[in-house]
Design a protein around this nucleic acid. Structure first.
Lengths: 227, 227
DNA sequence: TCAAAAGTGTTAAGTTTACACCCATGA
DNA sequence: TCATGGGTGTAAACTTAACACTTTTGA
C-alpha cells in the first residue's frame, strides 16, 4: 500500500520506553535505577529509558534498552502502559511506554551498570525520581503484584535453584505481607511444577535447605499456580 | 527548560488511539464498530480511532475520539495498551494505543454513529477487523472481564435503574458463563451500594421486577465488591 | 388458568487460616 | 551443647456451590 496523504495532516511524536527493573536481593525487592550521568536531568534519579527507533517495534525497543543496561537477553518483561501527558517531559513532548522486567540479580553485567551509574535500590526506600517515573513505578509494582498472584512470574527473580524459604521471602516481599510457613509449603507441594532437586543449599543455614527448581514444561501442562 | 538537541537525533511517530466500545444489549455484549466509509481500508470493519494531536494528552485523545463517534462525555475508559509493531498499519508506521469504553447503549448519539457508518455487533460474532484490531479487542475483553470481577465497572453498561436479572445477565455475558440466581442475589445483598429503589420495571415480566441503583458514595465508603 | 419471569434459604463441599514443636548441623 | 534456620499436620472458621419451589400477573 502506498503512503497516503491523510497521515500527513497529523503530528508526530517522540516515543520512548522506560524500564522498571525488578530484582530480589537479601529479602527485599529492588529496582535498578540510574543516577543520571547524562542529560537531560543529569544528576537526578530516573528509570532506564530510551527512544523508540524506526527499525524496531515498541516491545523490541524496551528489550534493547534493557539489554543496553544489563547485558541481558530473554528477560521476562510486561508492558505497564502509556504515559502521554503533554508536559510530562519538560524538555520536549515525549510519549513514553513503561515496561517492567524481572531479572535475577546474580546475572546482570556489572560493567554496563557501572557505566550508566545505575544501582539497586530498595523498593520501599526509593529516591525522588524525575518526571512521572514514580507513577510508572507504582503502576508497575501493582501490576507485577497482581500478575505474580496468578502466574509463576516470580521465579524470574530467583536463581534456577532456590530454597522454599527464599521463595517464601520473595512472595512476602512482592505482597508486602508475611505468610505462614506451613500453609505456604502446603501450597507449594500442590504445584507439581515446583520440583524438588536432590541438591542442598548450605549457605543459609547449618542444617542446609533443600533446593527446588521450576519446571516450565510441567507448568504448561498443569497451569496450576496459586501462592 | 529549553528544547535540547539530543531529542532531535530520534525519530518521531504518528500516534493513534483506538477505542473498543462496549455496550450491553438484549443479554449480550456488543462492540460499536465502523464499517469504514473513509480511507484507509474503506469498506472494511474497524475500531473507531484517531490520531493524537499536539494539544492533547493521549488519554484526552481517546476521550475526544470516543466523543466524536458517540457524542458522550465522562465515559468510563481504561487504557488497554500499546500496539507498536512496525508494520501493523500497512500505510505508514503508526503506534496505536487501545482504550476500552463502557457505555450505556441507550445514551449514544445515533446521528453521529450513522455518519460514521458504525453499528453494534455481538461480541461473540465479530466480523474480520483491519490491522491488529482483533488483537486489541481480545486484550480489551480480557482486561475488562478481569477488572469487572473486582471493581463495579459493569454498572456503566446498564441504565441508572436496573433489575437484578439484568445485572446477572450482564455479568453472565462478561464472564461468559451462567450463574446461580440465588447465589448471585445473595452476593448482591451483601453489597450495600447496590440500592433497592421503590420502582418496579414491568417491561420484562408480568409480575414486574424491582429496580435497583448503584450508589457511588456508599461504594467509596465500603469498597466492597465481589460478583 | 396458565405461562413466564421474580423472588427466596439451607446444606454439603471445599478452601483458608491459625497454630507449635522437633530436626540437623556447625560453631 | 546450643543457637539457627529447616521441616512437618490438624482442626476450626469461613467461603463457595448446589439445589427447587412459591409468587404475581397479564394475556
Amino acid at each position: 500500500m502506498p503512503k497516503r496523504n491523510f497521515y500527513r495532516e497529523n503530528p508526530r511524536f517522540y516515543v520512548a520506553v522506560d524500564c522498571i527493573i525488578f530484582g530480589f536481593h537479601k529479602g527485599t525487592l529492588n529496582l535498578l535505577l540510574l543516577k543520571r550521568n547524562f542529560e537531560p536531568s543529569k544528576g537526578k534519579w530516573s528509570l532506564m529509558g530510551g527512544f523508540v527507533q524506526k527499525d524496531e517495534s515498541v516491545d523490541n525497543a524496551a528489550k534493547r534498552v534493557l539489554k543496553e543496561l544489563t547485558g541481558l537477553d530473554n528477560v521476562y518483561m510486561e508492558q505497564v502502559g502509556v504515559f502521554g501527558e503533554i508536559e510530562r517531559d519538560p524538555g520536549e513532548r515525549v510519549i513514553s511506554i513503561a515496561y517492567y522486567a524481572l531479572i535475577n540479580v546474580d546475572d546482570y553485567d556489572r560493567e554496563l551498570v557501572d557505566r550508566y551509574n545505575a544501582s539497586w535500590t530498595d523498593i520501599n526506600n526509593l529516591p525522588k525520581l524525575i518526571f512521572d517515573h514514580m507513577e510508572m513505578v507504582d503502576k508497575a509494582r501493582s501490576r507485577m503484584k497482581q500478575k505474580a498472584s496468578y502466574k509463576p512470574i516470580g521465579f524470574n527473580l530467583l536463581p534456577k535453584l532456590f530454597t522454599l524459604t527464599q521463595l517464601q521471602t520473595l512472595y512476602e516481599a512482592i505482597y508486602g505481607e508475611s505468610m505462614d510457613k506451613r500453609n505456604f509449603r502446603k501450597r507449594v507441594a500442590e504445584m507439581e511444577f515446583i520440583e524438588m532437586t536432590d541438591e542442598i543449599d548450605k549457605t543459609g543455614s547449618k542444617r542446609g535447605a533443600r533446593l527446588y527448581r521450576m519446571n516450565n514444561d510441567i507448568y504448561r501442562k498443569t497451569r496450576k499456580f496459586k501462592i
